[in-house]
Write a protein that binds this DNA or RNA. Structure first.
Lengths: 216, 216
DNA sequence: CCACGATACGGAGGCTTGCTCCGTTTTAAT
DNA sequence: ATTAAAACGGAGCAAGCCTCCGTATCGTGG
């Protein structure tokens, strides 16, 4: 696993991080990845410890909750996902759609992950942060170009994406469902009256406001 | 002579349903409702049995899995939900939106229910069936009137609704999120170019096809 | 190189819950 | 009242979670 540099804090008076700590953390992450892959995110944590060849106490010292372990075991991939998205070509809307699809793919990395994915996205881990910010960038770009309604927030959109992940994971029978649901989401983001070719990149926020007001 | 009573029953060779069976089933459902309300759907089933004043074995005989109990404990409400929707006034799209919101509300009846709600909706129970059919009716009406794209399936839409329930349940901080997410879903259902005011009753599936194809 | 204090390790053990199995009890029919 | 089918109850075992504390390991200063 990656050589994870120490976190931020490092006061002169503190000792160096012990080597066994780093090693065990890496072993645990590796074991968690393999166990979660095989048995899903509800797998026994004792099994993870066993496979990492450390005691269960060590596991809990490193990762006080199952969620903490899960987040840590997802984070590298999430970080990579955020970085790759910078290469997406095509219209802003296309890029958004691809980004969403990648997230949904990621959320099916482990069986049962989708259900916890909303929590993962709120954990504040590096990968989570990077993904949120990348989503925000793509969304705001699309909004600036008038391709997406301006009153949409990245939080809601990511919540919807997490929701789609769950919906997709609960019906394994239909492979294409993910694509259809993402498309539904994206369609829902667009301004109601077609962005006829007049959508010029230059203009700052073309307020094409959906006339639909809730409350009826 | 043999089986006088049995005349009322389909198969002559079957005995009447024992009274304790009915009583215990009712007690269990009542207890389940109260325990799930207090402690969420992950509550201990032994607690349910205890509160119903039956043995744990009896609980498992009546409801072999937690899911079976949960479905049974939801079904009345689901049935009612399906029936109430017939009164919804307003445009087809408005009625759909309200219907979705009611479903999401229902899915938050017990803490943790949202996560299992997709499964509940596939259980084939009477309430589940009624809800699905009512959703289908509302959707197809909207589609006939050109208010919703014709290539949308009720299964996808219900899957999304269940997923929104989960997303909403995971961020309790924001009360209005449900409304916004449902609105996003509904917006995604509508044809891309505003609904021409003329509601066409005759035409079967109108082909206002969104030309968006995946791939590329 | 060694001694030592700080830190981390390991896993036994206590607890909760799930679920099964089978001797006992209740029920409906005769 | 008798009887056999059906349902009941709960002991008991398996599995998992998480804590606690005696023991082992590490980095450092002498």
């Amino acid at each position: 696993m990656r050589n994870r540099r120490a976190l931020l804090i490092e006061t002169p008076t503190e000792r160096a991080v012990r080597s066994d700590v780093q090693r065990n953390r890496a072993l645990l992450l590796e074991a968690a990845a393999s166990v979660f892959s095989e048995r899903g995110v509800d797998a026994s944590l004792e099994e993870v410890a066993r496979r990492a060849k450390v005691g269960i106490g060590t596991l809990y010292r490193h990762f006080p909750t199952r969620e903490a372990l899960l987040v840590a075991a997802c984070d590298d991939r999430l970080l990579a996902l955020a970085q790759q998205s910078r290469d997406y070509a095509g219209t802003p809307v296309r890029a958004l759609a691809r980004f969403f699809e990648r997230i949904v793919d990621h959320a099916s990395m482990y069986r049962g992950l989708a259900e916890s994915f909303g929590m993962v996205l709120q954990s504040g881990s590096p990968g989570c942060h990077a993904t949120t910010e990348e989503g925000r960038r793509l969304l705001e770009r699309a909004q600036r170009e008038g391709e997406v309604k301006s009153d949409i927030s990245i939080d809601d959109v990511l919540a919807m994406t997490a929701a789609i992940s769950i919906a997709a994971s609960q019906s394994a029978d239909d492979e294409k469902r993910i694509g259809r649901l993402v498309q539904m989401l994206v369609d829902g983001l667009r301004p109601r009256l077609g962005p006829s070719a007049s959508a010029k990149p230059g203009g700052g926020g073309k307020r094409v406001i959906s006339r639909r007001t809730r409350g009826g």
